[in-house]
Design a protein around this nucleic acid. Structure first.
Lengths: 331, 331
DNA sequence: GTGAAAGCGCTAACAT
DNA sequence: ATGTTAGCGCTTTCAC
């Protein structure tokens, strides 16, 4: 457990000044090759590693930390985003701090503050519902922030990377209509959630374009989570005017719908925002809005890297494309 | 973008010395209540936040950073572990750095070094295959490390948190035997991977206990990933002596097996290490070794917290329990 | 109860 | 090509 060696230690042992060691460590040019070799040998011998905290303490020297606040790292959607972010930040020599807000605005604010105390060079946040109230430019003091999956507010003072929620939903529902469906139900989660709102708008777009009048009793909201969606599906199928297809606005809802149909041994067309493994193995006609969640993360991280490198242009809203996938249909 | 205020700024504005500000920030006792209130007011007014890098620069003052190196954060197994770790470290006021080794020992070593440069208080690693060569006590210089899912080496100089791989596999295969199966195939990934080895050993345990002689042509190895497992399943079903049940040593392999069976419209009993969503909706007799991956992370983080708090006892090997689950069987 | 001064490990500015 | 010095923001003696 010998203490960690410092530049001073290396300098003493190599018989040079600390600044020369610094030059070698930072690959600065004006060092005699012999000196450089000698210093390097001492560094290797001692196993010296530069203390990053001390380095980034100097003003101007920004830290190489990036902070990520996601909704829930345990959710594959968020962890794929995190993976994409990690890929880009790693390439740029940054380290990634991760934490989950658990959709609690207070925890989100608290995490951002803690990150700022650690001098992060930038932040990526999947904002909670009430982020607009807590995440403000004053809180950030110039540290760049990119939001992902949802905007912080509208209009948005920050860069944002979103999915094309509305168009994706419209295309999925239009597909169902093409397949002959007219009684298409929608099951959505918390109506305050941005993505659900957009996807619901896309559903209505598709109906309107086809001249179909939306039926209130086919539009179920507030049923987030697989369990609620399962109950909602049972309710839908028990009512008078039954749907012939169901659009689930996300994969947890789709899971509930599929469970309920399985329990009732009923075959209904199911469309879902979010693709999932096993879609190919399920004996139901599926229409999936598919996309690469890692790409969302990559795009957000790439934008943040630009900001860190000094880009001061107006906040951007980037929309990532989605595609329609019909399992078993190899066209 | 006014610069971030320092203790010095607070001190000047409050008309006290920097040390008094420090006392207030750190909740030290010997401060006059009035002074404390005045300083606190100034802190709030300026939005002062202590610079954590500067604080932990002082020797003794450990940083509140924990470093996690997982195989692939995009894999739900690892992200669940990460979530469990995050939960515990958050409770203890630590922040979590995350990165993926992508199963490359060199990248793993590199990440650990980078973490150490950032003065992490401790490390949690899901070791790669060749971790024993790179992760050594010399590299770590006294920074505690806990490995998770796989041991670094055997015997292990570090704490390790593992699943009960062998017993879980044995129980799953024993269940298949109880159900009347005697020709039980196993599909495993890379034979050098610890978990696969243990699970294969459990498979053999179960056969031996039942007096069944292992059939080499029913034991497929080296087929990691869903795609390979799919091919392996097709090969198994094309041969003379066909199995009536298949044990998949992890969920990606199980996915491949299920895909192949679905393509052939064949019903076979399938056992799998790892539970998965949709298990309830698949029309195959399944036997699943189930466990809580978050608990793995929680246990690893809890052990690390003990080490950070000074526990210097001998390295422990903790084994987390697994349970058998038969979907549809509500007993 | 409060403050002055030293120093953590490093880099930037300015010598030599 | 190399060294000296100051100082980043904070905590820690040790005075007062």
């Amino acid at each position: 457990m010998n203490a960690r060696p410092t530049m001073q230690d290396v300098a003493r042992l190599a018989g040079v000044s600390i600044k020369t060691v610094s030059r070698v460590v930072n690959n600065e040019p004006r060092v005699d090759p012999d000196t450089r070799a000698r210093v390097q040998a001492t560094i290797d011998e001692l196993g010296f590693r530069r203390n990053e905290q001390a380095r980034s303490l100097r003003p101007g020297q920004s830290s190489s930390l990036i902070g990520l606040v996601s909704g829930d790292l345990g959710n594959p959607f968020y962890s794929a985003i995190a993976r994409g972010i990690e890929e880009i930040t790693y390439e740029h020599g940054h380290l990634l701090l991760t934490a989950s807000s658990e959709e609690q605005p207070e925890r989100e604010r608290q995490l951002i503050e803690t990150y700022l105390q650690h001098n992060v060079a930038g932040l990526i946040v999947a904002p909670t519902l009430d982020a607009a109230r807590t995440i403000t430019p004053e809180l950030l003091r110039g540290v760049p922030l990119v939001s992902v999956d949802r905007p912080v507010s509208d209009p948005d003072p920050f860069d944002t990377v979103l999915l094309d929620n509305r168009a994706g939903a419209r295309r999925a529902v239009t597909q169902l209509i093409h397949d002959g469906h007219t009684r298409i139900a929608i099951i959505d989660g918390n109506p305050r959630v941005y993505t659900g709102q957009e996807r619901t708008a896309g559903y209505l777009d598709a109906l309107r374009e086809a001249g179909i009048t939306p039926q209130p009793n086919l539009m179920i909201h507030g049923h987030h989570g697989a369990r609620h969606a399962e109950q909602a599906t049972h309710a839908l199928l028990s009512q008078e005017q039954r749907p012939s297809a169901i659009f689930a606005t996300n994969n947890r809802i789709a899971t509930g719908v599929i469970r309920a149909l399985h329990a009732r041994r009923r075959t209904l067309a199911v469309a879902s925002f979010d693709d999932f493994e096993f879609a190919d193995v399920i004996n139901l006609p599926l229409t999936l809005v598919s996309y690469d969640a890692m790409d969302l993360g990559r795009a957000a991280a790439a934008r943040l890297m630009q900001r860190i490198q000094g880009d001061a242009s107006a906040p951007q809203r980037l929309t990532q494309p989605v595609t329609l996938r019909v399992p078993g249909d190899s066209s």
